[in-house]
């Protein structure tokens, strides 16, 4: 099959996938989204002959638009634009999880600093303020006092892009010093790891240490339901452990897996390509 890779930067994750695809003699069309124009009627020539597109855009805005173009051009794309749209926006992500009765941290959205401060006071301290679009733990604030809340809200209102004026306020989850990342395809886990840190943020990108995690039945059920809630696909599902069980705080649609691949025995890129091969004939009639 001919796999189109949407990208603007080749990370270790993309390189692992490219190597796996080449080892299996698949054709690869690398599509640097910075270098093309996407017409509303006609796809760029580079898409010709591509059987499936794998979205590995580092930039969320590009990912959202180009996957939507792929869908309009009738080219299968993973993950699809609806999944991308739900996962890319923390508000939509939380709404999808809550609507599917997947346990997720209690969250308010407010549009003025006054309304946001009321939410923060209602949640109590500490609570968490997150950007609605963002990644790698950036611009996340654990708010421990009213004075800190007032300062952060003022900064966001004064200095931020309009998206920073959509205040996403979340209860602080008193998790152990780790969270769980499960990489799954259509709700079926490929592998999982725990990410530990003394810091309240436990992102691998923030330097958390990682170890293998074996999901139990409850985690497996939540992974499947969380995946379904956002439309399925190749996803990174993040869970926290609480005294009442797991809570799913977000689902990522252009999941990074290099840290996971280093810590587990499973060959993660191989499993991703297995899944991709199984997807394509069903959608296009092409034999992988």
């Amino acid at each position: 099959m001919n796999v189109g890779i949407l990208y603007s930067r080749i990370r270790r994750d993309e390189k692992l996938l490219l190597n796996e695809l080449r080892e299996r003699d698949h054709e690869i069309t690398k599509i640097d989204v910075r270098k093309h124009q996407f017409n509303v009627h006609n796809p760029p020539e580079i898409f010709e002959g591509v059987d499936v597109v794998l979205d590995r855009c580092l930039s969320t805005s590009r990912s959202l638009y180009v996957t939507r173009f792929c869908e309009a051009y009738g080219i299968p794309v993973v993950n699809g634009p609806d999944t991308a749209e739900t996962c890319a926006d923390k508000v939509k992500n939380s709404l999808a999880l809550a609507s599917a009765d997947v346990p997720t941290p209690d969250t308010d959205v407010a549009f003025t600093t006054e309304a946001a401060l009321e939410s923060i006071e209602a949640f109590g301290y500490p609570c968490v303020l997150k950007p609605v679009m963002g990644s790698w733990g950036r611009l996340m604030a654990k708010i421990e006092s009213r004075s800190a809340a007032e300062a952060i809200l003022e900064h966001k209102e004064t200095l931020g892009h309009y998206e920073h004026k959509v205040f996403y306020i979340q209860e602080f989850v008193a998790k152990p010093d780790r969270d769980i990342r499960v990489v799954a395809v259509d709700g079926e886990p490929i592998a999982a790891m725990a990410r530990s840190s003394d810091h309240w943020l436990t992102n691998a990108a923030k330097g958390a240490t990682t170890e293998v995690f074996e999901p139990d039945a409850e985690a497996l059920d939540l992974v499947e339901r969380a995946s379904d809630a956002v439309g399925g696909g190749l996803l990174g599902i993040d869970l926290m452990e609480t005294e009442e069980g797991y809570t799913v705080h977000e689902v990522n649609h252009t999941v990074e897996f290099k840290a996971l691949n280093e810590v587990v025995d499973v060959d993660v890129p191989a499993r991703v390509v297995d899944w991709l091969e199984a997807q394509v004939p069903a959608e296009t009639g092409v034999t992988a």
């Binding site: 580092l58 930039s59 969320t60 679009m133 963002g134 790698w136 950036r138 990174g236 990522n252 990074e256």
Partner: peptide, 8 residues
């Protein structure tokens, strides 16, 4: 340079 919307 790193952009604000980069990530996973």
């Amino acid at each position: 340079e790193l952009e604000e919307d980069w990530g996973e």
